[in-house]
């Protein structure tokens, strides 16, 4: 399968990165990691890229890494459709102090607009 992981730097997206890399390695999937500009995240794109490359190196797994500029939700959906991915993977939300799951705005947009299957990692 051809998998597109979107990562904007929030903690849940970092967790999604780690889980998706190990899953793709086990399943023999092709993986592309798209680094997004998430205004809700404090991590800079260059820091995220370092984190992505470290995670791939630790896993001994190869994936394409690309930067996606502009509005992250719509850009990711466009990329998934135009480049023929089978699945989009994103972080599954942060938890409030109470423990309530709160989806990020990127996940909300992609869930409602993606023409391909979307996986949210918990």
């Amino acid at each position: 399968m051809n998998v597109l992981l979107g990562i904007g730097g929030s903690d849940d997206s970092i967790r999604a990165l780690e889980r998706t890399v190990s899953r793709a390695k086990a399943a023999g999937d092709e993986l592309t990691v798209a680094i997004l500009e998430n205004p809700e995240s404090d991590r800079e794109p260059s820091n995220i890229e370092t984190r992505v490359r470290d995670t791939l190196a630790d896993a001994g797994f190869d994936a394409e890494v690309r930067h996606v500029s502009g509005d992250p939700g719509p850009e990711l959906v466009d990329l998934a459709e135009s480049d023929g991915y089978d699945q989009v993977v994103l972080g599954g939300g942060q938890r409030s102090p109470m423990g309530k799951i709160q989806l990020g705005h990127i996940a909300e947009f992609v869930l409602l607009n993606s023409p391909v299957t979307v996986t949210l990692v918990r």
């Binding site: 938890r95 102090p97 109470m98 423990g99 309530k100 799951i101 709160q102």
Partner: peptide
């Protein structure tokens, strides 16, 4: 249940209540 709470298992309920 709403937005993932209360948790479904007794073990997780206990952890969650410790926080609350």
């Amino acid at each position: 249940r709403a937005q993932g709470i209360p948790p479904a298992t007794e073990e997780r309920v206990r952890d969650w209540l410790e926080t609350l």
